[in-house]
Every structure is written in structure tokens, then in C-alpha cells.
């Protein structure tokens, strides 16, 4: 079985990463590139060169917000946003710690809440995130209270039939 990252990306996301000729349109348009270590086009190059560990441990793959600017502008039709998803999934599958711990925590909590209730549930989510993340505890508490006072974060989840079926979907998608 091949463990070359380039092959893995090609199989999983069906994207031809090596078509990149580094025009930098993706990097120039990326809204979060300032916070990244490498930026999207350099990351693609590193994938092609087999620098798996540096790519998969980088914070960049977790900072991608999925805005699709890069994918929309790429002259070679590389879906860089989907490639970023695949890099995250590969990074987790190979057991690397996430380069942005709290970004992964957010995604996991969100999916956990959806698995449990069938829908997102802000009060639950925000509470768990505040306790488990490294973001200082009091940040966003005033905003959270503001939302609550305006009746925007219901405490009790809605009662639905969906959760049973949604849990089934989670189970089946794992196999």
C-alpha cells in the first residue's frame, strides 16, 4: 500500500495537486493566509515533494475556513478547499496532533452535538467549547450572555425523530 501523500490525496479527493504552477492566485486571495505558516500554494508544492509530516502537522490545514476562493480562482481547476479537507482527514488518520487544537475541538464538538441531537445546539456547544478549549474562559462570555438575553440560545434541545436516524447515519458512515 502506498503511503505517499500525493497518491493518497489523488485517491481520496480525486484532485491533481501536481498541476499547480504556483501562480499564487489562491494564496493572494486566501483570507486567513496571514495566520498560516506556508499558505495554500506552498502547501500543494510540499505535498508534491512528499513532505508529508510538515504538511500534516501544519496549522495551515486547520486554519482553512473553506471559503472556496482558492478553488474558484485556480486556473488549473484544483479544488484546493476539498484538498484541505482531505489533508485534515489524512492528518487525523495518521495520528498527528492537530496544528490548531481548538479548531479540531470545535469540529468534533459540533459533530458530537449533531450526532446526539440531530441538530446543532448552541448552548451545549458553546458551554463545552468554553470548558474544553484553550481559549481563555471569559472571552465571549459577554457575547454569549447577549445572545441568551435576546432569546437566541434555547437551553433545551428540540424533540425530534431525527436523532435516531442521524445516529444511524453516523454509524453506517463509519463502516
Amino acid at each position: 500500500m502506498s503511503h505517499h501523500l500525493l497518491d493518497e490525496i489523488r485517491t481520496l479527493s480525486r484532485r491533481e495537486v501536481e498541476l499547480c504552477y504556483h501562480c499564487h492566485k489562491c494564496t493572494a486571495g486566501c483570507p486567513v493566509v496571514d495566520a498560516m505558516q506556508y499558505g495554500p500554494d506552498l502547501l500543494l508544492r510540499m505535498v508534491s515533494l512528499g513532505q508529508d509530516e510538515a504538511v500534516l502537522k501544519s496549522r495551515d490545514i486547520w486554519l482553512c475556513v473553506g471559503c472556496y476562493i482558492c478553488a474558484t480562482r485556480c486556473p488549473n481547476d484544483i479544488d484546493i478547499a476539498v484538498t484541505m479537507d482531505t489533508l485534515r482527514q489524512t492528518s487525523l488518520a495518521r495520528g498527528y496532533p492537530a496544528g490548531e487544537r481548538d479548531a479540531l475541538l470545535f469540529h468534533r464538538l459540533f459533530m458530537g452535538v449533531v450526532q446526539r441531537f440531530g441538530r446543532s445546539h448552541e448552548a451545549f456547544m458553546l458551554g463545552l467549547f468554553k470548558v474544553l478549549s484553550k481559549v481563555p474562559l471569559m472571552i465571549d462570555v459577554p457575547a454569549g450572555i447577549g445572545l441568551f438575553m435576546r432569546g437566541k440560545v434555547p437551553i433545551l434541545p428540540e424533540r425530534l425523530r431525527a436523532p435516531t436516524q442521524v445516529r444511524q447515519i453516523f454509524q453506517r458512515s463509519k463502516t
Partner: peptide
Amino acid sequence: WNCCGASSAHALHPTLAVALPAR
């Protein structure tokens, strides 16, 4: 109806990213 999975489903799980909205 159920949650569409938002940005978290496709970040972590490509199958769920389609299955949740598909339901």
C-alpha cells in the same frame, strides 16, 4: 429535518458531509 453538517462535517468526514444533507 436534521443539521446539514455545516463546515465541520466536510472538514472531518466526507461521507457524513453528503449523508446529513441527503437525509
